[in-house]
Design a protein around this nucleic acid. Structure first.
Length: 315
DNA sequence: CGTTTCAGGCGTCATGTATA
DNA sequence: TATACATGACGCCTGAAACG
């Protein structure tokens, strides 16, 4: 069976496995994405059907329960509540979780950690970083309290490619430059980011490092130098100031900028996650459409059979 | 082959919602 | 009540497909 739905060809195959009565039958519905959906029979025939069909007659998708429309059509909702419902839909996660809570064994959208993603490194799951910064090339730098710097590359999935490094002079920082190292995947050109204390981390080009206070740059790893900012902020770079040491209006402005960048970064990640959930929600809706098509077809067939039985031809 | 159209993704803003 | 989070809306960008 094929169902055309929203520019996407749905191919659904149904494998019946159960009895029409007694315990709810379970049907496997093969979705076009290769995903198999377990559906459950919902018709609880109070009287034995005329048709002694071993196959279940109706199915209900297990991944989704009701939509807003069906919810509205069920009971009488007072106008105020209705307005509230119409004013803003609940989140996709909430909808899906509420729906799936009706049917045990139905996968829910996890709160944060999704198994399918294999618990990717996430900014939100970092070891309580004191600060999060964004480099001029889009990388995110999280500086934990133990002196550990975590770098996440802006991959397709947001924060994949998280890397951790430790400052070499986590003890008493000497005045001047500090070298930090990390195994970057690809660092083309100079990039800069900033760390707390109004210092700048500059990726050095080859050996243009500060001659003193320098740790040995080993191998091909790029080196980063922490030093006081000398010029205006590069584009897309966040200046970090110690929260407790704000004096001048410039520092206040820098703190405001840092907060804004942090907020934007969080919202960026939230938007990505929201879109991912929305896609999942739409997938579930499409699955439900496929299952309801199957259900509709079976009901039509049953109706035709009943018609034949109740009104036999009298030739 | 250049242009146009369209779909999908992303970043940002505004605002509703949940929670401490 | 303040804060963080979630999400709709908007504009922009990019890649693919259609078209002349």
């Amino acid at each position: 069976m094929t169902v055309q739905h929203s520019n996407r060809l749905l191919m659904v195959s149904v494998a019946g496995s159960g009895t029409g009565r007694g315990s709810p039958a379970v049907t496997l519905v093969q979705l076009p994405s290769g995903q198999t959906v377990h559906v459950q029979g919902v018709i609880q025939t109070p009287q034995p059907s005329v048709i002694q069909s071993p196959q279940i007659q109706t199915v209900q998708v297990a991944t989704i329960a009701e939509t807003d429309e069906s919810a509205d059509s069920e009971g009488v909702i007072d106008s105020h509540k209705r307005r509230e419902i119409l004013s803003r839909r609940p989140s996709y996660r909430k909808i899906l979780n509420e729906l799936s809570s009706d049917v045990p064994g139905v996968p829910k959208i996890e709160e944060e950690k999704s198994e399918e993603e294999g618990t990717p490194p996430n900014i939100a799951t970092m070891a309580v970083p004191t600060s999060i910064y964004q480099t001029s090339t889009g990388q995110y730098i999280a500086i934990a309290q133990g002196g550990t710097i975590q770098i996440s590359n802006p991959g397709s999935d947001g924060v994949q490619g998280l890397q951790a490094l430790t400052m070499t002079n986590s003890g008493a920082p000497p005045p001047g430059a500090t070298i930090v190292q990390y195994a970057a995947q690809s660092a083309d050109g100079t990039q800069q980011f900033f760390v707390p204390g109004s210092q700048v981390v500059v990726q050095d080009e080859e050996t243009e490092l500060a001659p003193s206070h320098m740790a040995a740059a080993t191998g091909d790893m790029p080196t980063y130098q922490i030093r006081a900012p000398t010029t205006a902020l590069p584009q897309g770079v966040v200046m970090a100031a110690s929260p407790g040491s704000l004096h001048s209006p410039q520092q206040l402005a820098e703190e405001a900028t840092r907060k804004r960048e942090l907020r934007l970064m969080k919202n960026r990640e939230a938007a990505k996650e929201c879109r991912r959930r929305k896609k999942e929600y739409v997938k579930c809706l499409e699955s439900r459409v496929a299952v309801l098509e199957v259900q509709n077809k079976k009901l039509i067939e049953e109706l035709e059979t009943l018609k034949d039985i109740c009104s036999p031809k009298t030739d």
